[in-house]
Design a protein around this nucleic acid. Structure first.
Lengths: 335, 335
DNA sequence: CTGAAAGCGCTTACAG
DNA sequence: CTGAAAGCGCTTACAG
């Protein structure tokens, strides 16, 4: 079962192999040539070998995606949007799952490079400076998604994590909370750090202290443990959790294991506004990251740099919105 | 920024280009050659161009994955497992999102073929007979994941949907339920049909009738509406829902919109046992599909047929397990 | 507009 | 073991 090649089509259509190539690569050809080639191609079931084309054009039309935390609904959702946006532009996605950080990621990116990907999206994953240089040298643009990095050679698309968290602080303080704690994300990356810093700043602005912080590291169990520890040590009446994924775990622990009422005993606020946050079982007050627009921006930035590698990296932080649902008290309580 | 090629390495190492190729493709070479080539390669930062290699070997080491329903936790989870299993074997995943069925899928598969993928995994997605023939002709194995099909040219990996659903029937009947209805999945595919048929058979076995069936089509809103309609028309006291993803929506609707208690007023059972089913907010009694083993099987089947295209397609149905949690009553009620 | 030819970066018989 | 050469299936100047 040998593949049908442009040679086969050429013979059948009675034209040269170059003619066949021209027809399929959209170069100019006479109407008759086009017709004969197309006819022969359909008869034979011919489709150009994209790999061979890539070898010569130097563009694979493949974008590499490295993503972690697929159990956090935010990422499958982003993956779906990214796939759609890229498919619409004739690109395809080679996916790699990776841990948050570490050596695995580097290996994965090298493999991506081996496949001559035209660009790389790093969703909640970082890469070493050394590799960054390699990508630069190879002219392959990289965009960080939902994560920032100091290295200015990368483009990044995030939401305004600092501001979003600050708004949560103002909201909680405005609802009369004074004993406020934070279950942070992973403080090894900017997203977690910015949210913490913004929250602290917002609290200060409102004349509040941050009662306590524990890292949840974006893991359900770690986050629930952190929340429990905070409850037991500093007894907060409001908890800002670093993302929705952790907030669900915190809510579960509070309600079902610790017998607390939300928001009567404790207010809980998340970050992301994944679809599940709107499900009645949770009704989570949270900060909405505009994931659709974030993906669009990431794609735009990537394509722009693919067209013109000389273009400088962009760092985009989109606005976020506080979505008020039932998991946090809205006005000062009766006491 | 021209890419470093094997020519460059050859020059630097003072050997022929073929020697470089041999070192990197694992063919035999003398120790000194290997050493010199490796040294030159690292100095230059050389890595073989996988696309060029694929062109000549005829194997891309890319597996295409077409997947729908990424909002159903079952699929991101399967994707993660698949990625891990394939990566461990040196394969990579080109992902496409697709609708359940329809013309889009066909286009997507053609694109996969263009990329010379070595195999295709269709997760909850089907393909036309015509395309099937094309894949066969090209010698590209296809495996259906979590979906069966009549066409025997495909391999498929599912769980024993008929038996699993029959076990749910026995369980519900054993708990004293007599008014039992079903919110089905999508009856356009075998998975949904098998679960319905198995449920019906199990009920008959227990001397029960199936009070009513409505299609939920694996969508949250459709499923919740279906459940509500069943409640209003035939007033069941137990509902078997075609998968967990829909069951969560049904639970939400029952509890939060209709003010019903689960399982006191209605028992609810799902299918899949996605991680969320164990979360305390839901505590869903459900049938566990062994997704880890399903993925392993899919990979094995695919690799086996990639090595030997003459091997006949395999159809595997793994055993499933009923997982009892709190969403369904366990013994006959007081009335 | 069209064909012959070179070449993309590799692998792999084929001689030596 | 090693190098020269052919070839994988395309695209793209180059002449005509």
């Amino acid at each position: 079962m040998p593949r049908v090649t442009s040679q086969d089509v050429a013979r059948r259509a009675g034209v040269s192999q170059s003619a066949v190539s021209r027809v399929f690569s959209g170069a100019s050809a006479s109407k008759t040539t086009i017709a004969r080639v197309r006819a022969a191609a359909t008869e034979l079931g011919y489709r150009p070998n994209v790999l061979a084309r890539s070898l010569i054009t130097g563009r694979s039309r493949i974008v590499g995606l490295v993503v972690a935390h697929l159990d956090n609904q935010f990422y499958p959702d982003a993956l779906a949007r990214l796939s759609e946006a890229l498919q619409a532009r004739g690109y395809h996605i080679l996916v790699f799952l990776a841990a948050d950080a570490g050596a695995g990621t580097q290996a994965v990116i090298e493999e991506l490079l081996d496949y001559q990907v035209d660009g790389i999206v790093l969703a909640s994953v970082s890469m070493s400076d050394d590799l960054a240089a390699r990508c630069e040298a190879a002219g392959i643009p990289v965009v960080l998604f939902n994560r920032g990095q100091d290295d200015v050679r990368f483009s990044e698309v995030t939401s305004d994590n600092f501001d979003g968290a600050a708004r949560v602080a103002a909201f909680l303080a405005g609802a009369g909370h004074r004993r406020i704690a934070h279950v942070a994300g992973w403080l090894g990356a900017s997203t977690g750090r910015d949210r913490l810093a913004g929250f602290r700043a917002g609290l200060a602005e409102a004349g509040c202290d941050l009662l306590g912080v524990e890292a949840g590291n974006y893991r359900r169990d770690t986050a629930a443990d952190a929340a429990e520890r905070l409850l037991e040590t500093v007894a907060p009446d409001a908890l800002f959790v670093g993302n929705d994924h952790m907030a669900f775990a915190v809510l579960d622990r509070l309600r079902h294991d610790m017998g607390l009422r939300v928001p009567e005993d404790v207010s809980v606020v998340g970050y992301d506004d994944v679809p599940m946050a709107a499900w009645p079982a949770y009704g989570l007050t949270t900060v909405r990251q505009p994931s659709g627009r974030m993906v669009e921006c990431a794609v735009e930035v990537l394509l722009a740099r693919m067209e013109d590698p000389a273009r400088p990296p962009q760092r985009i932080a989109l606005e976020s919105t506080l979505i008020v649902r039932g998991s946090a008290r809205v006005r000062p309580g009766p006491d």
